[in-house]
Amino acid sequence: MSDPIIDIRYVAKLAQIALTDEEIERFGAQLGDLLQHVAALERLDTERVAATAQVVESRNILRDDVARPSLDRETVLAQAPQRQGKFFRVPRIIGE
């Protein structure tokens, strides 16, 4: 965390957001700035501290294996950006 460099291109690729060169520069500067503020956390001694993922300590909130109605296909497909018959359609998938 002492080196708050962020590889915006790599992160944008993971996040699937196209960025212009200008955006890469701007976001890089802004987020670099934020990471410097965030670096303040290094001052905290967290060696023996447990991580909090959830503040409420519930356990085993489960549902019974009982069917509920599904949505109407037409309602759902009507909102699809592109459909073909009964399916959602997407542009070609490259790779795996």
């Binding site: 109605p69 599904s70 959602f88």
Partner: peptide, 20 residues
């Protein structure tokens, strides 16, 4: 039913009918 919702867990069937 499915892992996280009440849609039926059965093989096959009419496409996009077991969705919520």
């Amino acid at each position: 039913t499915k892992m996280f919702c009440g849609c039926c867990n059965e093989f096959g069937g009419e496409p996009n009918t077991k969705i919520c």
